[in-house]
Design a protein around this nucleic acid. Structure first.
Lengths: 224, 224
DNA sequence: TATTTATGATAGTAATACTATTATTTAAAA
DNA sequence: TTTTAAATAATAGTATTACTATCATAAATA
Protein backbone atom coordinates (compact mmCIF):
# COMPACT_ATOMS: atom_id res chain seq x y z
CA UNK A 1 0.00 0.00 0.00
CA UNK A 2 1.33 3.40 -0.93
CA UNK A 3 -0.21 6.26 0.96
CA UNK A 4 0.35 9.88 0.13
CA UNK A 5 -0.56 12.47 2.70
CA UNK A 6 -1.87 15.66 1.17
CA UNK A 7 -2.15 18.71 3.34
CA UNK A 8 -4.78 21.18 2.21
CA UNK A 9 -3.33 24.65 2.40
CA UNK A 10 -4.99 28.05 2.70
CA UNK A 11 -5.64 29.12 -0.93
CA UNK A 12 -4.87 32.77 -0.13
CA UNK A 13 -1.25 31.70 0.17
CA UNK A 14 -0.84 30.82 -3.49
CA UNK A 15 -2.00 31.88 -6.94
CA UNK A 16 -1.94 28.37 -8.33
CA UNK A 17 -1.99 25.31 -6.06
CA UNK A 18 1.55 23.89 -6.09
CA UNK A 19 0.29 20.44 -5.10
CA UNK A 20 -1.52 20.11 -8.42
CA UNK A 21 1.41 20.03 -10.84
CA UNK A 22 4.97 18.80 -11.22
CA UNK A 23 6.25 22.36 -11.52
CA UNK A 24 4.39 23.31 -8.37
CA UNK A 25 5.86 20.41 -6.44
CA UNK A 26 9.30 21.31 -7.73
CA UNK A 27 8.82 24.86 -6.49
CA UNK A 28 8.10 23.57 -2.99
CA UNK A 29 10.86 20.98 -3.06
CA UNK A 30 13.59 23.31 -4.31
CA UNK A 31 12.44 26.23 -2.18
CA UNK A 32 13.01 24.10 0.88
CA UNK A 33 16.46 23.10 -0.36
CA UNK A 34 17.51 26.65 -1.18
CA UNK A 35 16.07 28.40 1.87
CA UNK A 36 17.63 25.83 4.17
CA UNK A 37 21.00 26.14 2.42
CA UNK A 38 21.38 29.88 1.96
CA UNK A 39 18.79 31.40 4.28
CA UNK A 40 15.60 33.24 3.41
CA UNK A 41 17.28 36.59 2.77
CA UNK A 42 19.48 35.16 0.02
CA UNK A 43 16.61 33.25 -1.51
CA UNK A 44 15.20 34.71 -4.75
CA UNK A 45 12.68 33.50 -7.28
CA UNK A 46 15.34 33.82 -9.96
CA UNK A 47 17.71 31.41 -8.20
CA UNK A 48 14.80 29.09 -7.50
CA UNK A 49 13.75 29.14 -11.17
CA UNK A 50 17.29 28.36 -12.25
CA UNK A 51 17.52 25.46 -9.80
CA UNK A 52 14.26 24.00 -11.08
CA UNK A 53 14.96 24.71 -14.73
CA UNK A 54 12.06 27.05 -15.26
CA UNK A 55 11.77 30.82 -15.44
CA UNK A 56 11.15 33.48 -12.85
CA UNK A 57 7.75 34.16 -14.39
CA UNK A 58 6.97 30.49 -13.95
CA UNK A 59 7.40 30.75 -10.20
CA UNK A 60 5.41 33.98 -10.01
CA UNK A 61 2.46 32.13 -11.48
CA UNK A 62 2.35 30.04 -8.30
CA UNK A 63 3.33 32.51 -5.60
CA UNK A 64 2.85 36.26 -5.43
CA UNK A 65 6.11 36.78 -3.59
CA UNK A 66 8.70 34.96 -1.58
CA UNK A 67 7.13 35.81 1.77
CA UNK A 68 3.93 33.98 0.89
CA UNK A 69 5.99 31.04 -0.25
CA UNK A 70 7.77 31.05 3.12
CA UNK A 71 4.47 31.21 4.99
CA UNK A 72 3.22 28.39 2.79
CA UNK A 73 6.02 25.96 3.61
CA UNK A 74 6.00 26.95 7.27
CA UNK A 75 2.25 26.45 7.52
CA UNK A 76 2.67 23.16 5.77
CA UNK A 77 5.14 22.16 8.47
CA UNK A 78 2.80 23.10 11.31
CA UNK A 79 -0.03 21.15 9.68
CA UNK A 80 2.23 18.18 9.21
CA UNK A 81 3.39 18.39 12.85
CA UNK A 82 -0.21 18.59 13.99
CA UNK A 83 -0.89 15.40 12.07
CA UNK A 84 2.20 13.76 13.58
CA UNK A 85 1.11 14.71 17.08
CA UNK A 86 -2.45 13.51 16.61
CA UNK A 87 -1.21 10.28 15.11
CA UNK A 88 1.52 9.55 17.62
CA UNK A 89 -0.32 10.60 20.78
CA UNK A 90 -3.47 8.80 19.73
CA UNK A 91 -4.54 6.19 22.29
CA UNK A 92 -2.31 7.68 24.97
CA UNK A 93 -4.53 8.04 28.02
CA UNK A 94 -2.20 9.75 30.48
CA UNK A 95 -1.96 13.45 29.56
CA UNK A 96 1.48 13.65 31.14
CA UNK A 97 2.78 10.92 28.85
CA UNK A 98 1.06 12.70 26.00
CA UNK A 99 2.65 16.04 26.82
CA UNK A 100 6.07 14.42 27.09
CA UNK A 101 5.54 12.89 23.69
CA UNK A 102 4.56 16.28 22.25
CA UNK A 103 7.65 17.96 23.68
CA UNK A 104 9.75 15.22 22.17
CA UNK A 105 8.14 15.60 18.76
CA UNK A 106 8.56 19.37 18.86
CA UNK A 107 12.20 19.32 19.91
CA UNK A 108 13.55 16.36 17.98
CA UNK A 109 15.26 16.77 14.66
CA UNK A 110 12.81 15.33 12.23
CA UNK A 111 13.52 12.56 9.75
CA UNK A 112 12.26 12.80 6.20
CA UNK A 113 8.73 11.46 6.01
CA UNK A 114 8.42 9.04 3.10
CA UNK A 115 4.70 9.72 2.88
CA UNK A 116 5.40 13.12 1.35
CA UNK A 117 7.48 12.89 -1.78
CA UNK A 118 8.22 16.52 -2.55
CA UNK A 119 8.87 17.73 0.99
CA UNK A 120 11.98 16.95 3.00
CA UNK A 121 10.74 17.40 6.56
CA UNK A 122 14.25 17.28 7.97
CA UNK A 123 15.28 20.35 5.97
CA UNK A 124 11.95 21.96 6.73
CA UNK A 125 12.58 21.49 10.44
CA UNK A 126 15.89 23.31 10.02
CA UNK A 127 14.10 26.13 8.20
CA UNK A 128 11.64 26.40 11.04
CA UNK A 129 14.43 26.81 13.52
CA UNK A 130 16.16 29.64 11.72
CA UNK A 131 13.39 31.23 9.64
CA UNK A 132 10.17 30.25 11.38
CA UNK A 133 9.56 33.46 13.26
CA UNK A 134 10.09 35.53 10.11
CA UNK A 135 6.68 34.34 8.98
CA UNK A 136 4.97 36.57 11.53
CA UNK A 137 7.65 39.12 12.46
CA UNK A 138 6.60 41.51 9.71
CA UNK A 139 4.86 44.82 9.39
CA UNK A 140 1.91 43.11 7.70
CA UNK A 141 1.26 40.53 10.41
CA UNK A 142 -2.21 41.95 11.03
CA UNK A 143 -3.20 41.70 7.38
CA UNK A 144 -1.73 38.20 7.13
CA UNK A 145 -3.53 37.17 10.29
CA UNK A 146 -6.84 38.38 8.89
CA UNK A 147 -6.24 36.05 5.97
CA UNK A 148 -5.73 33.21 8.49
CA UNK A 149 -2.13 32.58 7.47
CA UNK A 150 -1.26 31.55 11.03
CA UNK A 151 -4.14 29.16 11.61
CA UNK A 152 -1.96 26.02 11.52
CA UNK A 153 0.33 27.50 14.17
CA UNK A 154 -2.62 28.54 16.32
CA UNK A 155 -4.25 25.14 15.96
CA UNK A 156 -1.07 23.44 17.12
CA UNK A 157 -0.78 25.85 20.03
CA UNK A 158 -4.36 25.04 21.00
CA UNK A 159 -3.73 21.32 20.81
CA UNK A 160 -0.74 21.64 23.12
CA UNK A 161 -2.67 24.01 25.37
CA UNK A 162 -5.47 21.48 25.70
CA UNK A 163 -3.06 18.74 26.74
CA UNK A 164 -1.59 21.11 29.33
CA UNK A 165 -5.08 21.68 30.70
CA UNK A 166 -5.68 17.93 30.80
CA UNK A 167 -2.60 17.68 33.03
CA UNK A 168 -3.74 20.51 35.24
CA UNK A 169 -7.13 22.13 34.55
CA UNK A 170 -6.29 24.94 36.94
CA UNK A 171 -3.11 26.06 35.19
CA UNK A 172 -3.59 29.68 34.21
CA UNK A 173 -1.43 30.07 31.10
CA UNK A 174 -2.00 27.07 28.81
CA UNK A 175 -1.65 29.01 25.55
CA UNK A 176 1.34 31.05 26.59
CA UNK A 177 3.05 27.96 27.93
CA UNK A 178 2.24 26.12 24.70
CA UNK A 179 3.66 28.89 22.52
CA UNK A 180 6.66 29.05 24.84
CA UNK A 181 7.33 25.33 24.38
CA UNK A 182 6.93 25.55 20.61
CA UNK A 183 9.13 28.62 20.28
CA UNK A 184 11.75 27.42 22.72
CA UNK A 185 12.02 24.01 21.09
CA UNK A 186 13.37 25.92 18.09
CA UNK A 187 15.16 28.84 19.67
CA UNK A 188 17.11 26.76 22.18
CA UNK A 189 18.11 24.50 19.31
CA UNK A 190 19.34 27.50 17.33
CA UNK A 191 21.22 28.81 20.35
CA UNK A 192 22.72 25.41 21.12
CA UNK A 193 24.19 25.19 17.64
CA UNK A 194 25.08 28.82 17.02
CA UNK A 195 25.29 30.75 20.30
CA UNK A 196 25.84 27.96 22.83
CA UNK A 197 26.65 30.24 25.74
CA UNK A 198 22.98 31.25 25.75
CA UNK A 199 22.17 27.69 26.75
CA UNK A 200 23.42 24.99 29.09
CA UNK A 201 23.87 22.40 26.37
CA UNK A 202 27.23 23.54 25.03
CA UNK A 203 29.08 20.29 25.50
CA UNK A 204 26.66 17.86 24.03
CA UNK A 205 24.89 19.57 21.08
CA UNK A 206 22.29 16.95 21.72
CA UNK A 207 18.62 17.75 21.41
CA UNK A 208 17.89 15.34 24.27
CA UNK A 209 19.21 18.06 26.56
CA UNK A 210 16.68 20.51 25.14
CA UNK A 211 13.90 18.02 25.74
CA UNK A 212 15.01 17.63 29.37
CA UNK A 213 15.08 21.38 29.85
CA UNK A 214 11.61 21.80 28.34
CA UNK A 215 10.19 18.92 30.39
CA UNK A 216 11.65 20.41 33.54
CA UNK A 217 10.20 23.81 32.67
CA UNK A 218 6.77 22.54 31.71
CA UNK A 219 6.11 19.97 34.40
CA UNK A 220 7.29 22.18 37.23
CA UNK A 221 5.03 24.91 35.84
CA UNK A 222 1.89 22.85 35.67
CA UNK A 223 2.46 20.83 38.82
CA UNK A 224 -0.65 20.83 40.96
CA UNK B 1 23.86 68.24 36.82
CA UNK B 2 23.42 66.90 33.32
CA UNK B 3 24.70 63.39 32.82
CA UNK B 4 25.02 61.74 29.45
CA UNK B 5 25.42 58.01 29.35
CA UNK B 6 27.62 56.85 26.53
CA UNK B 7 27.63 53.22 25.63
CA UNK B 8 30.83 52.03 24.02
CA UNK B 9 29.97 49.83 21.08
CA UNK B 10 31.92 47.14 19.27
CA UNK B 11 33.89 49.01 16.56
CA UNK B 12 33.45 46.15 14.07
CA UNK B 13 29.82 47.18 13.86
CA UNK B 14 30.49 50.52 12.23
CA UNK B 15 32.87 52.20 9.79
CA UNK B 16 32.76 55.54 11.57
CA UNK B 17 31.59 55.85 15.17
CA UNK B 18 28.09 57.34 15.04
CA UNK B 19 28.40 58.67 18.60
CA UNK B 20 31.12 61.09 17.50
CA UNK B 21 29.17 63.38 15.17
CA UNK B 22 25.79 65.00 14.69
CA UNK B 23 25.24 63.09 11.45
CA UNK B 24 26.10 59.85 13.21
CA UNK B 25 23.64 60.54 16.01
CA UNK B 26 21.00 61.43 13.45
CA UNK B 27 21.59 58.13 11.71
CA UNK B 28 20.90 56.28 14.96
CA UNK B 29 17.97 58.44 15.92
CA UNK B 30 16.18 58.27 12.56
CA UNK B 31 17.00 54.60 12.03
CA UNK B 32 15.13 53.82 15.21
CA UNK B 33 12.18 55.92 14.10
CA UNK B 34 12.00 54.36 10.64
CA UNK B 35 12.62 50.75 11.60
CA UNK B 36 10.00 50.97 14.33
CA UNK B 37 7.50 52.58 12.00
CA UNK B 38 7.86 50.53 8.82
CA UNK B 39 9.75 47.43 9.91
CA UNK B 40 13.27 46.38 9.08
CA UNK B 41 12.44 44.92 5.66
CA UNK B 42 11.06 48.21 4.37
CA UNK B 43 13.95 50.16 5.86
CA UNK B 44 16.56 51.39 3.34
CA UNK B 45 19.56 53.67 3.58
CA UNK B 46 18.01 55.85 0.91
CA UNK B 47 14.86 56.50 2.93
CA UNK B 48 16.99 57.04 6.01
CA UNK B 49 19.18 59.56 4.18
CA UNK B 50 16.10 61.41 2.96
CA UNK B 51 14.64 61.54 6.48
CA UNK B 52 17.88 62.95 7.87
CA UNK B 53 18.53 65.29 4.97
CA UNK B 54 21.76 63.69 3.89
CA UNK B 55 22.66 61.32 1.07
CA UNK B 56 22.81 57.55 0.82
CA UNK B 57 26.58 57.71 0.52
CA UNK B 58 26.61 59.66 3.75
CA UNK B 59 25.02 56.78 5.63
CA UNK B 60 27.31 54.24 4.01
CA UNK B 61 30.26 56.07 5.48
CA UNK B 62 29.00 55.08 8.94
CA UNK B 63 27.57 51.62 8.36
CA UNK B 64 28.55 48.97 5.85
CA UNK B 65 24.97 47.77 5.48
CA UNK B 66 21.60 47.87 7.15
CA UNK B 67 22.09 44.60 8.98
CA UNK B 68 25.10 45.95 10.88
CA UNK B 69 23.10 49.04 11.72
CA UNK B 70 20.34 46.81 13.10
CA UNK B 71 22.82 44.81 15.16
CA UNK B 72 24.28 48.10 16.37
CA UNK B 73 21.03 49.49 17.74
CA UNK B 74 19.99 46.14 19.15
CA UNK B 75 23.34 45.71 20.89
CA UNK B 76 23.01 49.23 22.18
CA UNK B 77 19.67 48.27 23.69
CA UNK B 78 21.07 45.19 25.43
CA UNK B 79 23.94 47.23 26.84
CA UNK B 80 21.54 49.87 28.03
CA UNK B 81 19.29 47.22 29.61
CA UNK B 82 22.29 45.69 31.31
CA UNK B 83 23.06 49.08 32.77
CA UNK B 84 19.44 49.52 33.86
CA UNK B 85 19.45 46.14 35.57
CA UNK B 86 22.74 46.72 37.36
CA UNK B 87 21.57 50.15 38.46
CA UNK B 88 18.10 49.17 39.57
CA UNK B 89 18.94 45.89 41.27
CA UNK B 90 21.93 47.35 43.02
CA UNK B 91 21.69 46.99 46.80
CA UNK B 92 18.96 44.38 46.54
CA UNK B 93 20.05 41.56 48.78
CA UNK B 94 17.35 38.98 48.20
CA UNK B 95 18.00 37.26 44.85
CA UNK B 96 14.30 36.50 44.48
CA UNK B 97 13.43 40.17 44.73
CA UNK B 98 16.24 40.85 42.30
CA UNK B 99 15.00 38.30 39.79
CA UNK B 100 11.48 39.70 40.03
CA UNK B 101 12.86 43.13 39.31
CA UNK B 102 14.77 41.82 36.31
CA UNK B 103 11.68 40.14 34.88
CA UNK B 104 9.80 43.37 35.33
CA UNK B 105 12.49 45.39 33.58
CA UNK B 106 12.64 42.92 30.71
CA UNK B 107 8.89 42.74 30.16
CA UNK B 108 7.82 46.32 30.80
CA UNK B 109 7.37 48.78 27.98
CA UNK B 110 10.23 51.14 28.43
CA UNK B 111 9.98 54.89 28.79
CA UNK B 112 12.35 57.18 26.96
CA UNK B 113 15.50 57.65 29.00
CA UNK B 114 16.38 61.32 29.19
CA UNK B 115 20.02 60.46 29.78
CA UNK B 116 20.38 59.47 26.15
CA UNK B 117 19.45 62.27 23.79
CA UNK B 118 19.56 60.58 20.41
CA UNK B 119 17.99 57.26 21.38
CA UNK B 120 14.30 56.77 22.10
CA UNK B 121 14.35 53.66 24.26
CA UNK B 122 10.62 53.23 24.02
CA UNK B 123 10.77 52.86 20.24
CA UNK B 124 13.87 50.73 20.59
CA UNK B 125 11.99 48.39 22.89
CA UNK B 126 9.32 48.02 20.20
CA UNK B 127 12.03 47.24 17.65
CA UNK B 128 13.41 44.57 19.92
CA UNK B 129 10.05 42.91 20.15
CA UNK B 130 9.47 42.68 16.42
CA UNK B 131 12.97 42.73 14.94
CA UNK B 132 15.27 41.58 17.74
CA UNK B 133 15.71 38.00 16.67
CA UNK B 134 16.57 39.06 13.11
CA UNK B 135 19.93 40.15 14.46
CA UNK B 136 21.04 36.54 14.86
CA UNK B 137 18.61 34.60 12.63
CA UNK B 138 20.87 34.91 9.59
CA UNK B 139 23.11 32.72 7.52
CA UNK B 140 26.13 34.63 8.77
CA UNK B 141 25.46 34.22 12.49
CA UNK B 142 28.71 32.30 12.93
CA UNK B 143 30.80 35.02 11.29
CA UNK B 144 28.97 37.71 13.28
CA UNK B 145 29.46 35.76 16.47
CA UNK B 146 33.20 35.49 15.85
CA UNK B 147 33.24 39.28 15.68
CA UNK B 148 31.49 39.35 19.08
CA UNK B 149 28.37 41.06 17.77
CA UNK B 150 26.24 39.24 20.33
CA UNK B 151 28.35 39.91 23.39
CA UNK B 152 25.87 42.37 24.95
CA UNK B 153 23.10 39.81 24.66
CA UNK B 154 25.30 37.08 26.12
CA UNK B 155 26.40 39.33 28.96
CA UNK B 156 22.81 40.06 29.85
CA UNK B 157 21.95 36.38 29.67
CA UNK B 158 24.84 35.64 32.01
CA UNK B 159 23.74 38.31 34.45
CA UNK B 160 20.25 36.85 34.58
CA UNK B 161 21.67 33.34 34.79
CA UNK B 162 23.78 34.33 37.78
CA UNK B 163 20.77 35.70 39.61
CA UNK B 164 18.90 32.48 38.89
CA UNK B 165 21.79 30.56 40.43
CA UNK B 166 21.74 32.84 43.46
CA UNK B 167 18.11 31.83 43.93
CA UNK B 168 18.87 28.17 43.51
CA UNK B 169 22.51 27.09 43.04
CA UNK B 170 21.36 23.63 42.07
CA UNK B 171 19.16 24.67 39.18
CA UNK B 172 20.48 22.95 36.07
CA UNK B 173 19.56 25.33 33.25
CA UNK B 174 20.38 28.89 34.30
CA UNK B 175 21.42 30.10 30.85
CA UNK B 176 18.60 28.44 28.96
CA UNK B 177 16.10 29.74 31.47
CA UNK B 178 17.64 33.20 31.21
CA UNK B 179 17.45 33.24 27.42
CA UNK B 180 13.92 31.88 27.68
CA UNK B 181 12.88 34.76 29.93
CA UNK B 182 14.52 37.33 27.70
CA UNK B 183 13.07 35.92 24.50
CA UNK B 184 9.64 35.30 25.96
CA UNK B 185 9.39 38.78 27.45
CA UNK B 186 9.42 39.97 23.83
CA UNK B 187 7.68 37.15 21.98
CA UNK B 188 4.72 36.96 24.37
CA UNK B 189 4.38 40.71 24.02
CA UNK B 190 4.34 40.41 20.23
CA UNK B 191 1.80 37.60 20.42
CA UNK B 192 -0.38 39.48 22.89
CA UNK B 193 -0.62 42.43 20.53
CA UNK B 194 -0.70 40.65 17.19
CA UNK B 195 -1.68 36.99 17.60
CA UNK B 196 -3.44 37.03 20.98
CA UNK B 197 -4.82 33.50 20.72
CA UNK B 198 -1.24 32.27 21.19
CA UNK B 199 -1.37 33.74 24.69
CA UNK B 200 -3.71 33.97 27.66
CA UNK B 201 -3.63 37.75 27.82
CA UNK B 202 -6.15 38.53 25.08
CA UNK B 203 -8.52 40.59 27.16
CA UNK B 204 -6.15 42.91 28.87
CA UNK B 205 -3.27 43.71 26.49
CA UNK B 206 -1.45 44.53 29.65
CA UNK B 207 2.19 43.66 30.10
CA UNK B 208 1.56 42.98 33.79
CA UNK B 209 -0.03 39.72 32.66
CA UNK B 210 3.18 38.78 30.86
CA UNK B 211 5.17 39.53 33.98
CA UNK B 212 2.89 37.28 36.02
CA UNK B 213 3.25 34.47 33.50
CA UNK B 214 7.03 34.78 33.46
CA UNK B 215 7.26 34.93 37.25
CA UNK B 216 5.07 31.86 37.53
CA UNK B 217 7.24 30.04 34.97
CA UNK B 218 10.56 31.05 36.48
CA UNK B 219 9.89 30.65 40.18
CA UNK B 220 8.19 27.30 39.77
CA UNK B 221 11.17 26.18 37.72
CA UNK B 222 13.85 27.18 40.18
CA UNK B 223 11.97 26.26 43.35
CA UNK B 224 14.14 24.21 45.62
C1' DT C 1 -10.50 19.08 -33.95
C1' DA C 2 -11.07 23.14 -31.46
C1' DT C 3 -10.08 25.39 -27.44
C1' DT C 4 -8.74 26.28 -23.07
C1' DT C 5 -4.86 26.10 -19.84
C1' DA C 6 -0.07 25.73 -18.36
C1' DT C 7 4.45 26.59 -19.46
C1' DG C 8 8.59 28.67 -21.76
C1' DA C 9 11.11 32.45 -23.59
C1' DT C 10 12.03 37.04 -23.60
C1' DA C 11 11.75 41.90 -22.36
C1' DG C 12 11.22 45.54 -19.47
C1' DT C 13 10.70 48.56 -15.05
C1' DA C 14 11.26 50.49 -10.53
C1' DA C 15 13.59 49.86 -6.42
C1' DT C 16 17.45 48.16 -3.69
C1' DA C 17 22.07 47.73 -2.22
C1' DC C 18 25.72 49.15 -2.99
C1' DT C 19 30.67 51.73 -5.14
C1' DA C 20 33.09 55.57 -7.08
C1' DT C 21 34.23 60.42 -8.09
C1' DT C 22 34.57 65.09 -7.36
C1' DA C 23 33.53 69.36 -5.13
C1' DT C 24 32.83 71.77 -0.91
C1' DT C 25 32.81 72.69 3.85
C1' DT C 26 34.69 72.15 8.49
C1' DA C 27 38.06 71.20 11.78
C1' DA C 28 42.74 70.26 13.26
C1' DA C 29 47.78 70.84 12.72
C1' DA C 30 51.70 73.45 11.36
C1' DT D 1 46.98 82.34 10.10
C1' DT D 2 47.72 79.39 6.73
C1' DT D 3 48.02 74.70 5.35
C1' DT D 4 46.36 70.40 5.39
C1' DA D 5 43.50 66.85 6.42
C1' DA D 6 39.06 64.97 7.32
C1' DA D 7 34.08 64.88 6.86
C1' DT D 8 30.24 65.80 4.11
C1' DA D 9 27.36 66.83 0.01
C1' DA D 10 26.20 66.08 -4.75
C1' DT D 11 26.03 63.26 -8.43
C1' DA D 12 26.55 59.19 -11.23
C1' DG D 13 26.71 54.55 -12.07
C1' DT D 14 26.26 49.17 -11.51
C1' DA D 15 24.46 44.68 -10.43
C1' DT D 16 20.77 42.50 -8.36
C1' DT D 17 16.07 42.11 -6.77
C1' DA D 18 11.24 42.03 -7.14
C1' DC D 19 8.32 42.21 -9.85
C1' DT D 20 4.82 42.84 -14.64
C1' DA D 21 3.77 42.09 -19.40
C1' DT D 22 3.73 39.83 -23.86
C1' DC D 23 3.70 36.23 -27.02
C1' DA D 24 4.62 31.67 -28.68
C1' DT D 25 4.18 26.86 -27.91
C1' DA D 26 3.01 22.48 -25.75
C1' DA D 27 -0.22 19.68 -23.27
C1' DA D 28 -4.64 18.57 -21.57
C1' DT D 29 -9.67 18.76 -22.15
C1' DA D 30 -14.13 19.39 -24.44
Amino acid sequence: MKLEVQIKMNPSLYLRDPEQSELGKNIINYSIQLIQKNGFEAFTFKKLAEAIGTTEAGVYRYFENKHKLLVYIISWYWDWLQFQINYRTNNLKDPIVKLKKVIKILATNVEDDVMTTHVDESLLHQILISEGSKAFLTNHVEKDNKQHFFKPYKDLCNTVGDIILECNPKYKYPHSLASTIIEMAHIQNFFMNNLPSLTDFNKTKDEVEIIKFLEDLVFKSIEK
